[in-house]
Structure formats: C-alpha cells, structure tokens
Design a protein around this nucleic acid. Sequence first.
DNA 1: AAATCCGCCAACCGCAAGACT
DNA 2: TAGTCTTGCGGTTGGCGGATT
Length: 275
Amino acid sequence: MEVRSENEMVTDVKKGPWTEEEDAVLRSYVETHGEGRWNSVAYFAGLRRTGKSCRLRWLNYLRPQVRRGNISLEEQLIILELHSRWGNRWSKIAKHLPGRTDNEIKNYWRTRVQKQAKQLKCDVNSQQFRDTMRYEWMPRLAERIRAAESRGRPACLPVTSSKEPIFDNRGARMAELESGWKDPSFVPELSSGISSDSSSEAQVSPVSGLTECYNLPNGSTTGPGSGAGYSGWDIPAQDDIMSSELLLDGGDSWDSLWNEENIWFLRQQLSDDHF
DNA sequence: AAATCCGCCAACCGCAAGACT
DNA sequence: TAGTCTTGCGGTTGGCGGATT
C-alpha cells in the first residue's frame, strides 16, 4: 500500500480553479472535522491541494456564512468609512461586514474605488482623493441610503428573532458617521498600506486639485458620480439621488437589500461602540 | 462574426507572526 | 531558545465573460 506523507502530497499539488467534486470533499470534511490544521485537511480529505488553498477556498467560498452578491449601499459606506480609518486592513474591515471576506472587500476597493481615483487622475492615497471620498462620496452615499429609506423601506423595520428593535439608533449612528467625516479636524487614520508619504501627496494640490474635478459640498457636483460617467461605482450625482432607478445596486430589490442578513449586520454596525 | 479590450473575481504568492516541539 | 509548522494577511496575477470595435 502506498504511503505518502503530508509533505509529499504538497509536491503533487494541484492549482487553479476548484471543481465541484473538490468543493464537496472539502465541505464534507470540514463539516465533519471542523476548521483548522489545513495541511491535514488537504491530506486526509484526499485533496491534491495545499493547506493554504483549502483554507482560502473554505473561508472565501464554501463557508455557510459567506454572503455573495452585490455590495449594498450600507456596506459601501462602511467600507469607505473604515478604510479611511484603517487603510488597507482588509481583514479588519471585513470583520465589520459579516459574511464578506477580506478578499471580496479588497477586490471591491481595487476594481471600483481605485478605478475612480484613476479617472480623477489622482493617487488613491492622495489628500485630493481622500477629500473627494469624505466630502462627496460618503455624504452622497448616506443621502442615497436615507432617500431609499424614505421611499421604499418602512420607517420602523421589522424586528429580528431576538425581538429587539433594529434601527432605533440608526439616525444617531448615521449622524455620528457624518459628523466624523464632515468635521474639519477629521483626519483619516493612515495605517500600513496607505502611504502617508507627503511626497506622494505633493503630486496633487489638495484643494485646488479637488475643485478642478469636484466642487466642495456647497457647490454643484461633477465627477464620477455625475450621471452617465459612472458605472459600477454606486455613488451618483446629487441629481441622481432623486432618481429612484438609481437608489439600489443594479438588480437589487428592497427585499434583497433588506434581507435578514443585511439587517443583522446593520444592527451590528449601528450598535454603540462597535467601531 | 471575429478580434480586441476591459472589468471582475478567484486563487496564488510571499511574508510575518504566533504556536508548537 | 531555536527551529519548524501553521495560520493569517495583503499584494498580485491570470482566466473568464461581457462589451466594444
């Protein structure tokens, strides 16, 4: 009988997309034996994969808690808010978005947000871009959420199985978030992954550069949110906010946006001392 | 209809920190 | 205490599919 060690298995490793059969094997094994010891999982489950690959597949795809589909408006706002605080700390940000993986948030940031920075011809780490996020996108997003809330959503949302009110402090929380980014003294926390090197920020003029692409909050708006120019990124121009067609992500309905999972994570996000 | 471009996302890689021996 | 193993994180890449030419 052939006996192979775990290390030998690794040399026989398979890469690339997972098959349904592999998924079934991994899911079955983890459900029976639990997570952890991923090299052993790969070996004893008979998968020709590395432990790392098994772990990643489980965490990012097979876990029952993983949420799939469009990033909701609230999730977008939370991502912007937390990224302004922590920078590229994807796993940390993901912990505040139940069911979302760090990989998903990272991909979202790179494909949507960095694309807008590119269109603005500014560095994603620049003061100009941070100001744009802070003064334009986040307030607009909050406005969209409120507008959506006032249209299709019942003022008092249903209770969860715990019978606790869900959004009792929602307004207060939103105001708290906004006061943070509207406060002139607000300085986004820069941690690893965000360059605080002043030389990179010197590439653009923080204010004059901003006004070339965007007007500050008291002015009219131009830029990625202005009508036909934006796609994928879900922050519309002020005018668009009043367009009900743009209130939701593409294809999202109120039912899907305000399902149990969204309500659950919003409860978490809007609860006191969560950040 | 074919070729090319582009956006998205799953998965890989290297590194670092913590756990274990 | 040092070496090894495991896990977790962030950056990057490659393939797929839809859009555009």
